[in-house]
Design a protein around this nucleic acid. Structure first.
Length: 389
DNA sequence: TCTGGGGTCCTAGGACCC
DNA sequence: TCTGGGGTCCTAGGACCC
């Protein structure tokens, strides 16, 4: 069973800001003039062609009367946790796969529940509504892909069940672009080869498909077109990366400014690593030039760490040449980001570590305790503030 | 229209090793 | 002297998802 909240960001904002309740044209993502994209649009705004992922500026032109709000991650997270609690009550295995969606694995539970899957879905929907005030759509299917497509099909505020044996026929009505895993690029490439619909793939002999798209992709396409997909839910164990990035209001061409932001982003990443009991084995610096060319530079760390300074020093070493390269192209910097990768659980401190490092670790612990009580912004490295400020 | 922020997974080339 | 085949690890970029 796949549960998908309807216009999640928009509806959470309405819950938190009563003055938005009756605003029909509501767009979440940022202020009208911001350099961002639409996170979520109300169903009213969608009638004007506004879609998530669309630049805010474009949305403002399509729907000038709309109200634009930024939204608050903390509220999304709280609502998401409430939804998780509901789905966990109804299945032996349940995972959220985003803030606004999750799966329930109900295999082998037919004797456990005295009701049909459809009735169970009704219950889940009612309980989510009671717990959060939010509406959702639910898809039921023999595998994850079918359940997900079915919830899409059900939107908004409905339930769609695809029973075992119906997968192929259900998939036959879809475009290839509707299959999870086929994004804009792949859809375009397939269209150029004359493939647009699932039914076409179903009707094409494997050999012909292999000549069109290659052996591996042909096998993948056939599997999906037949309506087959994964049936196991596994919750991820360790995260693979922790990152922060920011797009500037205007392109930046002063290293000092980049350096200050890098320090802030690195502090955020390092803080989250410590919060989650993780250390990083490598870092990745990301720069987006004014012309949208994006480069990443990676560096392995001499020892795994979650200390601000030990992440910042190598990040700075990557920034200098990467910034010089942008300057050589006569481009300012549009976006700066830093990611911690090759993550591992924190281990007990080394008995023989240098005294200076012990002090830095203890200082970091103290900073973390202050932040736990008063928030992240309560304490900063002096250089974040810059001179004369 | 002018392009977010947080992630995951895949590919491909090069270094290195046996 | 010019040359295998298999494997792993590293880095960079790209596609995709919400």
């Amino acid at each position: 069973m796949h549960v998908d909240l309807d216009a999640f960001f928009v509806e959470v904002c309405r819950q938190r800001q009563p003055e938005l309740r009756d605003v029909d044209l509501l767009i979440v993502g940022g202020r009208r003039e911001s350099r961002g994209v639409v996170q979520s649009a109300s169903y009213g705004a969608r009638k004007f062609g506004v879609r998530s992922g669309m630049p805010i500026g474009h949305a403002a032109r399509l729907c000038p009367q709309a109200t634009f709000v930024k939204g608050d991650f903390v509220h999304y997270r709280d609502a998401s946790h409430a939804v998780r609690a509901v789905i966990e009550r109804h299945a032996p295995a349940a995972v959220m796969t985003g803030l606004d969606e999750g799966y329930l694995d109900l295999s082998g539970t037919d004797l456990l529940y005295p009701v049909s899957l459809l009735e169970l879905a009704e219950q889940v929907r009612n309980e989510i509504r009671a717990a959060t005030g939010l509406d959702c759509s639910i898809g039921i299917g023999p595998n994850r892909m079918i359940a997900k497509i079915a919830s899409d099909y059900a939107k908004p505020r409905a339930i769609c069940e695809v029973r075992p044996g119906w997968e192929r026929g259900f998939a036959a009505g879809l475009t290839l672009a509707a299959l999870p895993g086929i994004g804009p690029k792949t859809a375009k490439r397939l269209t150029e080869r004359g493939l647009t619909d699932v039914a076409q793939v179903q009707a094409t002999p494997l050999g012909d498909l292999e000549r069109l798209v290659g052996r591996d992709e042909a096998a993948w396409l056939v599997r999906r077109a037949e309506g087959r997909g994964g049936t196991v839910l596994r919750s991820p164990d360790l995260p693979k990366s922790v990152s922060r990035e920011t797009t500037f209001n205007r392109d930046v061409s002063a290293v000092a400014e980049l350096d200050r932001v890098l320090l802030l982003l690195t502090a955020r990443v390092a803080g989250q690593l410590r919060d989650e009991g993780l250390v990083a084995g490598a870092i990745v610096l990301k720069l987006r030039h004014g012309d949208f060319v994006t480069v990443t530079r990676r560096r392995a760390l001499s020892a795994p760490t979650a200390l601000d300074g030990e992440l910042l020093a190598p990040a700075r070493e990557l920034l200098a040449p990467a910034f010089a390269a942008a300057r050589a192209r006569r481009q300012g910097i549009r976006l700066l980001g830093i990611a911690a990768v090759r993550l591992a659980p924190t281990e007990a401190p080394d008995l023989f570590e240098a005294p200076g490092r012990t002090r830095r670790r203890e200082l970091t612990d103290a900073v973390d305790r202050v932040r736990a009580r008063f928030g992240f912004a309560a304490v900063h490295s002096g250089s974040v503030r810059g001179k004369n400020r």
